[in-house]
Computed example of a mutant assay.
Amino acid sequence: PARARARDPWTHLAAHTPARIALGRAGPGLPTREVLGFALSHAQARDAVHTPFAADEVAQKIEALGLAALAVESAAPDRATYLRRPDLGRRLSDRARAVLAELKPAPCDLALVVADGLSSAAVHAHAAPLIAALLPRLEGLSVGPVAIARQGRVALGDEIGEALGARLVAVLIGERPGLSAPDSLGVYLTFAPRVGLTDAARNCISNIRGEGLGYDEAAFKLAWLIAEARRLGLTGVALKDESDLARLPPAGATLLPKR
């Protein structure tokens, strides 16, 4: 047994990661359990992409937090088109554009957009709890109506934020499913949103889920980035996430437990 462990140093590492390592072998192939596990993960990833977005349920959860919710959709008319035409997912439909134009909201410090993206399962599970963890950290900021966007890509937030007169927009969106994370939520923060920006103008917080970044930690990072974006007047490659430094003990403080 000791010699076997020495020959396979990966085995003990498998307990610390969902990545597919130390799978073993059965002859020239993989063990049956690993083949079946891979097939299950692949099916879960496909389901995450194609599961219909329960926008009304998400809106109800957000309204229960005391925020107004607004239904919009991208220019992609259906899921099949959305997957084939990413460009349509970055633009509002004519109807949604008209709705926002008629709304004429007061300018706000922050607009929130909740979009299905490539994993509606992630949005169903994590969007409302993340917003609930974030709101207490936004004291003193005005938050516009939350746009619940069907068939949305990240850049859809630029047009929505511009229409809402928001100084910042945060897009909560289902990330592309992986074979170990079909329900991962991402957040993209953009200062002075407007049509035509690229991803270089955004800051991203990813892997928000039970097995990844928790709601409180993600909310802390997002609130820190919002504060820094307002102070510096920018987001993106020029804004480095140094939120972890804000949680370090002050210089000279002891890390030893008190007796």
Rank of each mutant, 00 (worst) to 15 (best):
A106L: 11
A238N: 14
L255K: 00
K104N: 12
L138G: 13
P28I: 12
G89S: 07
F191G: 00
V99H: 11
I148Q: 01
G144Y: 05
G161V: 07
P105R: 05
T254C: 14
D56A: 15
Y82Q: 07
D78M: 08
R202F: 12
A192C: 13
A122K: 00
L138W: 15
G186E: 03
G140M: 07
I160K: 01
P9I: 00
P177S: 07
D78T: 11
L83I: 01
A125V: 07
P77L: 04
V35R: 00
L164S: 01
L40T: 09
A253P: 01
F38T: 09
L36R: 13
S119D: 06
P250Y: 11
L112E: 05
A71T: 04
V171H: 00
P129R: 04
G236V: 01
T32C: 06
V72M: 10
L112R: 11
S120D: 06
E57S: 11
A96G: 13
A98K: 07
G196S: 14
V237H: 15
A200N: 15
L213I: 13
E102T: 10
L156A: 08
A39C: 07
A121P: 01
A101G: 15
A19W: 05
E162M: 12
A45L: 00
L172S: 06
L112F: 11
P249D: 02
R202I: 03
G210P: 03
L248I: 07
L135N: 08
G214T: 05
R85A: 05
V99D: 12
S243M: 09
L118R: 09
H124G: 01
A76L: 12
F191E: 00
A71K: 06
R202E: 09
R202G: 04
R167D: 02
F220S: 15
K240Q: 13
R209G: 01
E211I: 06
E34Y: 11
F53I: 00
K104H: 12
A26R: 15
P31A: 02
L70C: 07
L168A: 06
A71E: 13
R3K: 09
R247H: 12
D244W: 04
D183E: 10
A101N: 08
Q60I: 08
G161E: 06
A43S: 14
H50L: 14
V195Y: 13
S206G: 15
V99R: 15
S142K: 09
R150K: 14
L134N: 02
A227D: 08
Q151R: 10
L179I: 06
F53L: 01
D56Q: 14
L103D: 11
A192Q: 15
A155L: 15
A75G: 09
D216Q: 15
E228S: 07
L239K: 09
L239G: 08
R176N: 06
D183S: 02
A64T: 09
F220A: 15
L225A: 11
R176L: 05
R137Y: 10
K258F: 11
A192L: 08
A223D: 11
A39P: 05
G174I: 06
H12Q: 14
R137G: 11
A55F: 03
H50V: 08
L65Y: 02
V237W: 12
H42Y: 13
G233H: 01
L88W: 00
R176P: 04
A133Q: 14
L225Y: 05
L30R: 12
G24F: 14
L13A: 10
R91V: 03
G165D: 10
V146C: 12
A219E: 02
E63G: 13
P86F: 01
T198C: 10
A4R: 12
V99E: 12
G152E: 02
A115W: 04
I160P: 04
